[in-house]
């Protein structure tokens, strides 16, 4: 297949180090003898500390893309380079907050957060303490996942990976299952943590408003061709007002394009 010619806009992450490079990525699934082309010629680059939103309809391959970046499944074409090195297999430098609840039900909130930590006991304890308070769960430290709400669970899921200081944070519609109010709280929490830690974040969503509120840059995924259809830098000043003219204009543009 021929590569699409793209008009190269001036790099939106000018001045940033390149952290992630995705080149000609493709993924096909074979099920029941039929070949399903989910991703095809996905190309993009992410700068250090950028907040990228990947926006696409349900079923367009967003989770598949994240699974490849996390190293859970191999691509059938192309390559993923993290700081210039090809990604093969999962590792604590690329952590995922999953779409579904993936906490360990036999561990308490604090044990879940400490799960990936190594090192001297006291240091681990202090770190866990710190992250418990960052996500506002100090009082719930000894609760089990089944005893806390969906929003709290996602905060635990966030804390257990942030504590590992991943170079890249992959988030798969992490707040999609929450009610509007809880979702807004989580978005603000994530933005404040991002400001504090300056992680690089790849945030998958199908919620256009969420993408406009959070992203430095929005990648529009095309379900039919399985590639990135458009890259839209978001130049709105933070914190972003949901009813500002610029916000609404971008929102309308994206709605039309999706």
């Amino acid at each position: 297949m021929k590569r699409h010619l793209k008009v190269i806009a001036p790099s939106p992450f000018a001045g940033r180090e390149k952290i992630l490079e995705i080149r000609g990525l493709g993924k096909r699934f074979e099920s029941n003898g039929r070949l399903l082309k989910v991703l095809d010629q996905v190309d993009f680059t992410v700068g250090e500390g950028e907040f990228i939103c990947i926006l696409g309809r349900s079923g367009c391959g967003k989770t598949t893309l994240l699974n490849i970046l996390a190293g859970f499944i191999p691509p059938t074409a192309g390559e993923v380079l993290l700081r210039g090195r090809p990604v093969s297999g999962p590792g604590p430098d690329r952590c995922v907050v999953f779409q579904e609840d993936a906490l360990f039900p036999w561990l308490t909130v604090e044990e879940n957060i400490a799960f990936g930590m190594r090192g001297p006991k006291q240091a681990v304890k202090d770190e866990v303490e710190h992250f418990l308070s960052l996500v506002g769960l100090t009082e719930f430290r000894s609760y089990l996942p089944r005893e806390i709400s969906g929003g709290m669970k996602q905060r635990v899921a966030l804390a257990r990976v942030l504590i590992l200081r991943p170079a890249l944070l992959l988030m798969d519609e992490p707040f999609a299952a929450l009610d509007a109010q809880a979702r807004q709280g989580m978005q603000n929490l994530l933005l404040s943590l991002w400001a504090k830690f300056a992680h690089t974040i790849l945030f998958v969503t199908h919620d256009v408003g969420e993408a406009v509120k959070m992203a430095d840059r929005i990648l529009l995924m095309d379900g039919d061709t399985g590639s990135i259809r458009e890259e839209i830098p978001v130049h709105l000043a933070r914190p972003r007002e949901k009813d500002s003219v610029g916000f609404l204009r971008l929102l309308r543009h994206l709605m039309e394009r999706l």
Binding site: A70, G71, F72, G89, P90, G91, P92, R94, C95, V96, F98, E100, A102, F104, F115, G116, R118, R160, V161, L164
Partner: peptide
């Protein structure tokens, strides 16, 4: 749950 394996693998 396969997600538990993935979660474990990504946390090293």
């Amino acid at each position: 749950n396969p997600l538990h394996y993935r979660a474990g693998a990504m946390m090293g």
